[in-house]
Design a binder for these strands. Structure first.
Length: 732
DNA sequence: TTTGCTTATCTTTTT
DNA sequence: GATAAGCAAA
């Protein structure tokens, strides 16, 4: 008995969406504008397939992030009342990885290959460059990140290094020969040691499909219906994988928006969308042009942003929702003042009943939010940061993981060296010698445990070897959790010695990692997962989820919030200085701005500082971002810097528009996280009281603004207005 | 050979 | 402001 009727499909979808959902067979290209309900369309299509009796395991849903896939499948399951766990879903990389675990031999790889993350790639290039003597006294060589980018571009485009350098890195032509040699060494090293980087996952899988008709047929038979989300951000290799996977049926639906293509640095090209009808003759094209997310004033603004794009886009969005206020424009003095303004504004939104997780601040690069993070901390407003530095990239996590990696693969030189260098008085030369011994050894772990030496480091090295032997033993008995605890215990002394000032914080990261690891059964599973879907830095998921979101624009793709602030819309920040020298890259920056601005449902605020902090050089005057200047001023509402955020027009308009009843401050202390009850009641608010704050340290209350807010003069940092609801103050 | 100190160099975006 | 390279002392 189906939970959903034909009528339901019709009433939950507009005619175009309905067409896309019911068009089950043959190639289908859906051009979906921002906020046009493409997720809903995909969810209902999965539901439709299942209602039609298609076996879930023959459906494949490829998305940009794993979260997106699992979210969609969960909603499809709710609609159909079926478990959709059998539907194959995930990112291209995770899917390719799964397939490669059973087919790697066809590409000359052992099935036990190790996945390298971006950091591993950089470290390996560094190591090889060192060995090939490209670096050294007096020798300058491109940075590892640049080398990785060049090699990745070459691999993805199937072009020689020379072409890439000539086209994108003219200034490095001096090192062309060395880089080419490095590329070869890198490729050889990976194959010899069973390593695959992110590009390899896609490219090796594509090669296997290309070279093996039997695999193609097997795939075509296994996955009868293929759906791809965010198709504008796929690269040619991914397009080829889709084509090859659809062998025999061509039941492929791809969804994308050419105006939101923001990953060309990774080889993505909107040509994939444009070429799709050629790749699959007989393609049906459906456009979703109605916007359900934003209000018309917002859309007028975003339409203006994209109107100046050099390429002609194929659609014009109209708003479904009525009312709304124009986006706000705030001119800040500098980035600190910008941060204070946004933090105050966010605090007042929360005070007036907006849920923190309905608010986001977006920015071009990870470090642009530093000032805002400080201000939010000062006000005790909980937030989570997405994008930028990842937990897995931090040194202490890599150290901790390195033991697990050696246990799986003793020939993993990067991890072995990492672990060895933790030992005092054991340096790079000795580590190299030990690795050479390990390579020759038939039982590397035992070799380390019994390593003959009278050097100062010998004892610690033997301890490491013994730990590895124990891990092997525990692994054979499936005692996964015990392994993690032992590795943690081994690493702790090094952690404490190396990070005297902040090791408790780092210790927490490791505990968090161990906690989230317990859902895996083996070390290999954990390591794969860490490479493919690294956890974000910050408190783990189980705690209070209602946090303000700080995110790079790239990581905000596909998401939406009631209120969105875009930070640092100033030349020098946005567009990124790195994109200045190519028109194509500048066009992508414009699309990036478009993506950011279209995340807002009710309220959008664009901020730009008149001065920005340049690396080393201090404050420098900055022009407003060139894209801001292209928006007719009639479409924006300029916020008067002198006015209090609570009294701005946009603020009132936002409240009217969302119809959120204002919560009085008397009620709002109920049910909110933040301060422990026992702490809260005890704080006398009288001016003159000396208090301590977790971030600002000691200070003195100088003014009581309301029952919820006080002004505090801190010894360091000056006067801050604090919301007692969130700020952790103790009386001293 | 290791380590600690000084100096120069750039800072995009991510699976 | 982090990070890597360079240099000198232990």
């Amino acid at each position: 008995m189906p939970l959903i009727s034909e009528q339901d499909f019709k009433s939950h979808l507009n005619p175009e969406q309905y067409r896309a959902v019911t068009h089950l067979e043959g190639p289908l290209l859906v051009i979906a504008g921002a906020g046009s309900g493409k997720t809903r369309t995909l969810v209902y299509r999965v539901a439709r397939l299942i209602m039609e009796g298609i076996p879930p395991e023959s459906i494949l849903l490829l998305t940009f992030t794993r979260k997106a896939a699992s979210g969609m499948l969960q909603r499809a399951a709710e609609i159909t009342g079926h478990a959709c766990s059998q539907v194959a879903g995930g990112t291209f990389h995770s899917f390719a990885h799964r397939m490669l675990r059973t087919h790697a031999h066809l590409a000359g790889y052992s099935p036990n290959f190790t996945i390298m993350d971006a950091g591993d790639t950089r470290d390996l290039l560094h190591l090889l460059a060192r060995e090939m003597k490209f670096t050294g006294p007096g020798k300058r060589f491109p940075r590892k990140a640049t080398l990785a980018a060049i090699i990745s571009k070459a691999e993805n485009a199937s072009k020689p290094i020379e072409d890439i350098i000539q086209r994108y890195y003219q200034h490095l032509s001096r090192d062309m020969k060395s880089i080419t040699m490095l590329h070869h060494a890198y490729t050889r090293y990976k194959k010899k040691h069973g390593l695959m980087d992110y590009d390899d996952l896609l490219l090796r899988w594509r090669d296997i499909l290309l070279d093996n008709p039997r695999v193609r047929q097997e795939m075509g038979a296994r996955y009868q219906f293929i759906m791809v989300d965010e198709y504008q951000d796929t690269n040619p290799a991914q397009a080829e994988i889709v084509r090859l996977m659809a062998t025999g049926h061509e039941n492929v639906m791809v969804v994308g928006d050419d105006a939101q293509s923001i990953y060309s640095f990774r080889g993505a090209t909107i040509n994939n969308i444009l070429d799709f009808p050629h790749l699959f003759p007989g393609t049906t094209i459906i456009k979703l042009e109605k916007n359900y997310r934003s209000t018309q004033p917002n859309l007028d603004c975003t339409n203006a942003i994209i109107a100046n794009a050099s390429q002609k886009f194929s659609k014009r969005l109209t708003a479904h929702r009525k009312g709304g206020v124009p986006p706000a424009l705030y001119q800040a003095r500098d980035e600190n003042e910008q941060a204070a303004f946004v933090a105050d504004h966010i605090a007042s939104l929360i005070d007036n009943g907006t849920e923190p997780h309905e608010i986001a601040a977006l920015f071009r690069a990870g470090f642009h939010s530093f000032a805002l993070e400080t201000e939010l901390n000062a006000r005790g407003i909980p937030f989570e940061k997405r994008g930028g530095m990842r937990l897995i990239e931090s040194a202490h996590i890599k150290d901790f993981i390195s033991v697990l990696r050696i246990s799986q693969n003793p020939l993993d030189r990067l991890s072995l060296e990492r672990a060895l260098l933790l030992i005092p008085h054991l340096g790079i030369k000795t580590a190299g010698k030990i690795f050479a011994e390990v390579v020759k050894s038939s039982d590397p772990h035992r070799l380390l445990a019994k390593y003959p030496s009278r050097a100062r480091w010998a004892e610690k090295l033997q301890e490491l070897g013994k730990l590895l032997l124990e891990i092997n033993d525990l692994a054979s008995h499936g005692k996964f959790r015990k392994i993690l605890d032992m590795a943690e215990k081994w690493y702790r002394p090094f952690l404490q010695a190396n990070y005297i000032d902040d090791f408790p914080k780092r210790q927490q990261d490791i505990s968090q990692l161990i906690a989230m690891s317990s859902k895996y059964g083996t070390i290999q599973e954990l390591l794969d997962e860490l490479a493919l879907d690294p956890p974000e830095k910050g408190p783990d998921d189980s705690s209070n989820r209602k946090r303000v979101v700080l995110s790079t624009i790239h990581s905000a793709k596909g998401l939406e919030w009631k209120a969105v602030y875009i930070l640092s819309m100033a030349e020098g920040r946005f567009p990124s200085p790195a994109s200045q020298n190519s028109i194509d890259e500048l066009e992508e920056e414009r699309r990036l701005f478009y993506v950011a601005a279209t995340r807002a449902k009710d309220y959008l605020c664009l901020c730009y500082p008149m001065f920005i902090n340049m690396a080393g050089a201090g404050l420098a005057p900055a022009e407003p971002c060139r894209f801001l200047k292209e928006i007719p001023s009639s479409l924006l509402h300029q916020i008067d810097p002198a006015s209090h955020p609570l009294n701005t027009h946009a603020e009132q308009g936002f409240e009217a528009c969302t119809k959120t009843p204002a919560v009085t401050s008397k009620n709002s202390s109920q049910g909110s996280g933040g301060l422990e009850p026992d702490q809260q009641g005890d704080i006398p608010l009288a001016p003159g009281t000396r208090v301590r704050h977790s971030t600002f340290g000691r200070g003195k209350i100088i003014q009581k603004i309301s029952t919820e807010k006080v002004k505090v003069l801190f010894e360091v940092g000056g006067i801050k207005t604090l919301h007692l609801k969130y700020a952790k103050l103790c009386v001293i």
